[in-house]
Design a protein around this nucleic acid. Structure first.
Lengths: 200, 200
DNA sequence: GTCTATACAGCGATAGAC
DNA sequence: GTCTATCGCTGTATAGAC
């Protein structure tokens, strides 16, 4: 979970971008219900009403954060695809996307944090969260098909994709719960090692 | 995730138990930040202040819910152990504990819901949540040791236990996110099938 | 032991002045 | 783009009635 945004100088006009960035980090650390307009405003040095000017509701702010996050995440997936590394290598690099940057980084995948709150998220958000996971599953199915053989649309390959994603999201929660980020790559490695090696 | 409490007649004195039960179901469906004292009071037909009489703070209510849930869950684990089914059978029955009762049951494991909010939980709660997962990992390590060989304290067996638990928690989130509870047992089955079969 | 009444701070949100 | 003022809802606390 590197993907830290550049903190370029606050050239006028991108207050909105800065709010989006702050909100993203806050949600990843504390969830949708765990951050307030006050928190964002405090780091910006203004009042919470100023934030409302850029994003009329919390739903719009959170949804914008999810969409921007998904865009950046998909860009990372494309980069991995373009690298033309082996399928196994690509899966390993995928898993690394979920690792926190450091041991005291308690942030997790934005959409993993939101998936847990899915039942209480305001209305455009759940669909955007689902879209994130769907794109991940599609990408994973493509790479896994290369790894274990078969086509990405096979039921078995899709189940593998879902399982790997579920494993990583669950391991992320476990890593944060116990303050032990090694759980993520450790679980991923174990899973990858157990894959049948009949593919290319 | 069956474990529905008996809805015995509200014989005087167990208002507290009833609150605990309602809170548990609400947390499982909507998380700690997703339910209010009002919600509980509404189903009880009283005011939210009456609930406060039984549990002075939300932290105490949630913590009591976690402890009671853990107790019941451990009792289920003991029942599986006593059944003396094969290790493989026991692992399958364990996975079934995480399945929602029906397709429109959007409740997940109480501690899975809370793990996602761990960073924002009030203070006695996080430790109780961790205790739940630790007891699960210990039980899983015992059964997995039988299944794949080795001792429960082996690093490899413990990693397997953590992985299986992470997979189930992640699959639960995925199942709720997409309204498809089949994802849980499907992921569990795939994982169990991939276990090396050198034990017995 | 169970509940009612009341009060208060923090949050999301809106309207309007500068 | 930012601020003041105001609203309703939530969690919390206290005092007191039965």
């Amino acid at each position: 979970m590197v993907m830290a945004e550049r903190s370029r100088s606050p050239a006028k006009g991108d207050t909105k971008q800065r709010i989006l960035q702050l909100a993203t980090e806050l949600i990843r650390a504390r969830g949708c219900h765990g951050f307030t307009f006050h928190d964002v405003a405090a780091e910006l040095g203004t009042s919470h009403v100023a934030v409302h000017h850029h994003f009329k509701t919390k739903a719009l702010l959170v949804d914008a954060a999810v969409r921007a996050y998904t865009e950046r995440f998909v860009a990372e997936l494309d980069a991995i695809t373009r690298s033309e590394a082996s399928a196994d290598q690509q899966l390993r690099r995928y898993a690394e996307l979920f690792e926190p940057a450091s041991d005291d980084d308690d942030r997790i995948c934005l959409c993993g944090a939101l998936a847990a709150e899915i039942a209480t998220l305001p209305d455009p958000v759940p669909a955007s969260v689902r879209a994130f996971f769907e794109q991940n599953e599609v990408w994973l199915a493509k790479v896994l098909a290369k790894r274990v053989g078969g086509r990405p649309t096979t039921a078995r390959v899709q189940q593998l994709a879902r399982s790997f994603l579920a494993l990583l999201e669950g391991a992320m929660l476990g890593a944060r719960t116990f303050g032990d980020r090694s759980r993520i790559l450790s679980a991923a490695q174990l899973w990858l090692d157990s894959l049948p090696a009949d593919g290319r």
